[in-house]
Deep mutational scan, measured.
Amino acid sequence: MDETGKELVLALYDYQEKSPREVTMKKGDILTLLNSTNKDSWKVEVKITVNGKTYERQGFVPAAYVKKL
């Protein structure tokens, strides 16, 4: 869990989004878990840094590609 009590997951593999509802992640990324009720895909939040500014983006990733921490 992070400092706000949200559950975290670790990306086990790289994943490139295939639709606007998904998010891209790299192996080793730590993501905030938002919903894990679907056995196939979990909703997560990723933090992306562009030019020194951090943005948050929500979307789905394959459940088999992440592990709860």
Rank of each mutant, 00 (worst) to 15 (best):
I48D: 04
L33A: 01
I30W: 04
L8H: 09
V44L: 03
G5P: 14
V61I: 08
Y15I: 01
E45M: 15
G5R: 14
E22T: 05
L8M: 10
M1N: 13
L8R: 11
T49I: 12
Y15E: 01
E45Q: 13
R21M: 14
K39I: 10
E22L: 04
L8T: 07
D14K: 04
F60A: 01
D40N: 11
T37D: 15
N35P: 02
A63E: 02
S19Y: 08
I30V: 10
L10Q: 10
D29R: 03
V50H: 09
T4V: 12
I48H: 08
I30T: 04
V23D: 01
K47R: 13
V23Y: 03
D2M: 14
Y55F: 13
D29H: 04
I48F: 11
G5N: 12
I48S: 06
D29S: 06
E17A: 15
T4W: 12
A11V: 10
T37E: 14
L10W: 06
S41G: 05
K26W: 08
Y15K: 01
S19H: 11
L33W: 02
T37W: 08
A11P: 01
N51K: 08
K18A: 10
N38H: 09
A64Q: 10
I48G: 04
E17R: 15
G59L: 06
R57I: 09
V46E: 00
A63F: 03
S19V: 05
K26I: 07
L10P: 00
Y15M: 02
Y65R: 04
G52L: 04
Q16R: 10
K18G: 08
T32A: 08
A63Q: 04
Q58E: 08
K47I: 12
K26L: 06
L12N: 01
G52D: 06
E22Y: 06
F60I: 05
V66E: 00
M1G: 13
G5H: 14
N38P: 03
Y13S: 07
L8W: 14
R21V: 10
Y13C: 15
G28Q: 00
L33M: 02
I30K: 04
N51E: 10
K6F: 11
Q58A: 10
D40V: 12
L12H: 01
E3L: 13
V44G: 00
K68Y: 08
A63H: 02
L8V: 07
T32E: 06
W42S: 00
L10D: 00
G5K: 14
K39E: 10
L34W: 03
L34I: 15
T24M: 04
A11N: 02
A64T: 09
Y65G: 05
E45P: 00
E3T: 13
